[in-house]
Simulated scan of single mutants.
Amino acid sequence: MAKPALDRTRITRRGVLVAAAGTLFTAACGTDESNSPGPTTRGSEELIIGASLELTGPGSAHGVLQERALRITVDTLNEEGVPVGNLRRRIKMIYRDNGSRPETAAQQATELISKENVHALIGGITAETSLEMLKVAQTEQVPFISLAAADGIITPLPQRTYIYKLQPNAEDVARMMADLLAAKPKVGLIYSGGAYGQAGLAAVRKALGGKLAAESQLPPTGSNVSTAVRKVADAAPDAVIIWAQAPDSGAAVQALRAASFGKQVVFDPGAVADDTLTGDNATAAQDAFAIHPSSLAGMSLTDTTMADLDRRDFIYRYIQKHGAFRGFAPYTSDAVRLIANAARLGRSVDRGRIRVYLENLITEGIAGSYDFQPIKHGGMTADSLAVFQVTNAAWVRVN
């Protein structure tokens, strides 16, 4: 299959935003830490963050990778501590496994806030766990950074004032897919259920318009996907988009190939996990494309910015500890760095001040760039995305 020329040369905001970030960290706040909700912990030397992650269950394909990234970054930051006011605070990270169950994630969020007195929360790999966690975080007025992709996590904004997300917006991903498939007159879509899949469905419909010839929703994780996949394959599209997180993405592409569909396949970022390139999945996914943050390409010795150097250091530590770096964007790494930066800039671990400084952060992280504003709480900037192709069980960037 010929690789498309996708040199998306354009004037991007990314470099401008990062270059200007130092001048845009000035948020209007009072100086009295007692004015905002949550513990002020004036005498504490810890920045306490709670994480509820999918370490078991259907979301574990991504959850385990995010836990690894989080532990590496917390250890790195704790080597010198986080300067907050007159103190250098150590990050105290409290980990919980929600088992990919929304009700468990909500319970853990409640306990982390009420019993552990966390200053901020991270978690929710799946849309469903995030949506339950954010209800608790918003009610208790605790900053929460979601690791899920559904756009509804941060909207409507008046009801999500303490909520942020890092994954790319569905509309940005779908727009790149439309560019990639510009020469294909008929496109099929296979998407997962729930808020995640619905966001993808809406975005793809908007981006492709009349070119979308067939669509089908996958059954719950672990179910037989053959019937849902065959519905799209039988429409004989020129390409198929699979909008589903691992392991559903691997099951879908296997079923597509089993249905004798040999044409182009495009994954959304949720497919980019080790599971998708493991065993029989790797053969089925060969030559498929994926839209994903460009950090997936790894590191280069020519990288010279502070963000590049941080990324290189992170990847080096990850390889040292786990043997290989592939198949995901380390959103948890960026989440803990964003919280630490907000506490540093606000000179306080007060929950309200962390929230105010979070929504004025413009920064480039390990996974990509973020441009938070009072009217926008996520996700990753569109120019952080790139196109990759599966080549010999590896994700290779397409230029």
Rank of each mutant, 00 (worst) to 15 (best):
M133C: 10
H119W: 03
E128L: 13
N117F: 10
E111D: 15
A109L: 02
E132R: 15
E116V: 06
T139Y: 12
A127E: 04
M133D: 06
L121D: 00
E116M: 07
V118M: 04
E128A: 15
I122G: 00
I122K: 00
E132L: 12
E116A: 12
E128S: 15
V118E: 01
G123F: 03
H119E: 11
E128C: 07
I113M: 12
G124E: 04
Q108Y: 12
L134F: 13
E128H: 14
T129W: 08
Q108L: 14
G123C: 05
E116K: 11
E111C: 01
L134A: 07
A127H: 02
N117W: 04
Q108E: 14
I125T: 08
L121G: 00
E128M: 13
T126G: 09
Q108H: 11
K135W: 09
T126Q: 11
M133V: 10
N117M: 07
K135C: 10
T110F: 10
A137W: 08
L121Q: 01
I113Q: 07
Q138F: 10
A137G: 12
T126W: 08
L131R: 13
M133A: 09
M133P: 05
L134W: 06
A109D: 02
G123P: 04
T126V: 05
E111A: 15
E116L: 03
I113T: 09
Q138N: 11
Q108V: 09
A109T: 04
T129Y: 08
Q138L: 08
L112C: 06
A137Y: 06
I125G: 00
T110W: 05
K135R: 15
T126A: 11
I122L: 06
T129P: 08
E132W: 06
L131P: 03
G123S: 08
E111R: 15
I125F: 05
T139K: 15
A127F: 04
K115A: 10
L121E: 01
I125A: 00
T126P: 01
I113P: 01
V118Y: 01
T110K: 14
S114E: 15
H119I: 03
A127D: 11
T139R: 15
A120P: 02
L112K: 02
H119P: 01
I125Y: 08
L131N: 09
N117G: 03
A120L: 08
A120W: 02
I122W: 00
E111N: 14
L134P: 05
T139C: 04
